[in-house]
């Protein structure tokens, strides 16, 4: 569709979007700036400094938590991506099957389910199974939550793919599995990658579910940040947060580069 008269820059557009984006971005920008503030007080600008970054790298407990979080995020995102992609394939290509409603229900509910409920229920399961709490229980919990997001992302892409492409592949000699691997999979790879990154960042972000399912001595970074934040603002936290934001920014940029390189037509970079 060509740009119609109605799609244009107006005073209303610009005002609404400027205010909206200012609201969304200003707090983060302020946080990043203050992470370089030499002063301990937020009101006082003590000059640019990397003091709080040094402090973080000397904080053994924080470093351990960060390492734990990265491992949980990487492992859970990977399992979630595999399971979520399989679920998306079953939902978009499986037509009707027994328990389909239950299946899709179980996959959509966690998207909005209050985290306290998911966290509590998983903890009770782990206690009942007498599973030692730590890395694996948090990883399983995060996988359960994030695979639902992966499913939605991949499912919406699969739904856009013209089914006649798969028919053409079969017509040219592919059995269904070959048709999927040689035609469908290459087309959904960018959305699978987007799903992985979404799962990774969601895991890196979670406090509530991790608090329920983790054990002593295996706190994740958000849990540590959270317990520090409850005691008030600490400039070191600003520095940690800035680094997390930088990490996520790098991941997103890499992803958009990757999807641009693959140059798949009609692919939208939007995760939701």
């Amino acid at each position: 569709m060509a740009s119609r008269r109605i799609n244009r820059i107006t005073r209303f557009n610009v005002t609404a979007l400027a205010l909206g984006f200012a609201f969304l971005y200003l707090p983060i920008v302020i946080l990043v700036i203050y992470s370089f503030n030499d002063s301990r007080l937020v009101t006082v600008w003590g000059g640019w400094s990397l003091r709080w970054y040094r402090e973080f790298f000397n904080d053994r407990a924080m470093l351990d938590a960060a390492w734990m979080s990265l491992r949980v995020a990487a492992v859970s995102a990977t399992i979630a991506t595999i399971l979520g992609t399989l679920a998306a394939v079953a939902l978009t290509r499986g037509e009707r099957f027994g328990g389909r409603m239950l299946f899709s229900g179980m996959l959509y509910a966690p998207l909005v389910m209050p985290e306290v409920i998911s966290g509590l229920s998983l903890l009770l399961l782990f206690v009942a199974l007498d599973a030692g709490r730590g890395f694996w229980t948090v990883t399983i919990a995060h996988t359960t939550l994030t695979m639902c997001f992966v499913t939605v992302v991949v499912q919406s892409r699969l739904g856009q793919i013209d089914r006649s492409l798969e028919e053409a592949a079969m017509d040219l000699g592919c059995n269904p599995a070959q048709a999927f691997l040689s035609v469908t999979l290459p087309l959904i790879i960018p959305s699978i990658a987007a799903g992985w990154m979404l799962a990774f960042t969601l895991s890196l972000d979670d406090v509530v579910i991790a608090s329920f399912t983790t054990g002593p001595g295996s706190a994740t970074l958000p849990i540590r940040i959270y317990s520090e934040v409850r005691l008030g603002v600490k400039p070191e936290i600003n520095a940690i947060c800035t680094m997390v934001i930088a990490l996520i920014a790098i991941v997103i940029t890499a992803a958009s580069f990757a999807s641009r390189l693959s140059r798949v037509q009609g692919e939208s970079a939007a995760p939701l």
Binding site: F21, L24, Y25, P27, I28, I30, L31, Y34, V42, M197, L198, T201, L204, D205, V207, P222, I225, Y226, V229, V233, I237, N238, C241, V244, I245, I248, I252, A270, P271, L272
Partner: peptide, 19 residues
Amino acid sequence: LVIVPFWTSFLIRIYAWIN
């Protein structure tokens, strides 16, 4: 621009407001 903050940590964004 709307999606990017959604990718940044939720906890961090709350913390930014405490600042």
